[in-house]
Design a protein around this nucleic acid. Sequence first.
DNA 1: AGATGTTTACATACGA
DNA 2: TCGTATGTAAACATCT
Length: 497
Amino acid sequence: MPVLTSPDIANKFKERWLAAYPEDHVSGSESAPLDDSLTSLHWLQNFSILSADPERPSGAGLECPSSQQHLFIKRLAFPGTDSPSSPPAGDTAATGMPLYLGSPVTSGSDSTAAAPRFPCGAHPTPAYPQIPIQPSPPVEIDYKTNPKVKPPYSYASLICMAMQASKQPKVTLSTIYNWITENFCYYRHAEPSWQNSIRHNLSLNKCFKKVPRQKDEPGKGGFWQIDPQYADMFVNGIFKRRRMSANHYSSGSGTNSGAHRQSKLVQSYHASQNGCPYQGAGGKRKHLPSKNSNSKVMRATESPLLATEANKADVLRGDFDLSSVFDDVLGGSCSTFEDLDINTALSSLGCEMELAGPGRQGRWCGGVDVMGQSQHMNLHHQSYGYMDLSAASMECTVSMGELHVPHAHPQPQQQQLDPDRLLQSHHQHHHHHQLQLQHFDEPSILFPEQPEEAMLQTWEEIKEEAQAIPLTLDQGFSLCEGFFTEMQPWERVESYL
DNA sequence: AGATGTTTACATACGA
DNA sequence: TCGTATGTAAACATCT
């Protein structure tokens, strides 16, 4: 269901944009200002932030008979771009994929914040704030059915997705395996070495915590969960890079520098997330295994995405205050883009956000409709998202089809959460670096309403875990690629609209 | 035996 | 150039 599709909103945005940047009016054609490209915001009217529409018909149910619910997993690629990092010609990633003609609006999977929501297939002109033109329609990749394209998600992200999808606070390794193979065709056909990588990631990544199996619990291995201590990896839909010192984030929000910073961060993150360690010039390992060469399949979207993010970063570089543009567009409810982050993340999940009193820890939870059944997920229960919201008397609900932001009292948010450590610990083990991160004083404050017992499962619950209906990948994207990654202001704006 | 979990080593990409 | 993030491979231990 489209959200905020009213032309008035787009027009209002446009007006404010032009008010803030009248040069756009001058530089652009009078007859067609900011149009004929993504400089036009008309496409926003067709944009839906609820791409993970649970009601969406499963039009691509081609495989995975094990799952009644087809999970349409797709990302966008932009064939025809001349990005040096683009997939090589003839790349399987660019074949056999449905083309999305027309609207640059991403659909489906684009609940993921990391997804190339912004169709920046073309290289933008360096001068911001021109918005890159989309030269060719994006190609959506159905990772659920395309066995040749390696999903552009890190193993940590995959693990988190699987954990989230299981709706259980802890999952077994096999559950993770199953979820990945169910939702990513690539891994169904890939060499099993990826499982080794999964295990390696679980062991090495500090944000994953092993929960030993109880004595009376049959089965192999233990359970895994996201360590609540590292639940602060997610804040406002932003996965903050480790390299950014904490004070960079604790500073005020919505500043120009912040926009710039975030664009840089997105560059960095997506570069690492989507970078191709498998193929391409200089991308080959020296000790390539003599195994199936197919195991080195390029991630189809990584190169285009890489260029895309870089483009967006260019667009957003400079003194650029989207907040000023968007201020009041949404009724002044979201004064900062951090607000938008929250709501984007929430809206992409169809979440409700509950805010506690002043200075108290807020929490949010997601209601996800799966197979027509509303499954209310206390995400904080699963340690996936938490936020401190100091705004008093703020009541903000983002629902599937509409945005309610009554009584909003915009205040600078205290970003007490530092999601910077989600994926950072991978090789801490090797290098023994000190984290330059702000920490929670007490992990327990993450879940003040969460008794320790609540984190434990009964055996019955655990048995249900195996039968848990995985969330759609879209929803997984929302959590993992949305919460684990940064969204640029523009992305967030786009998502919001 | 196979699954699970840990650890080490090394590689690439990228940002500072 | 170095540090970081991530991926890959492999050896090894433990458990079922």
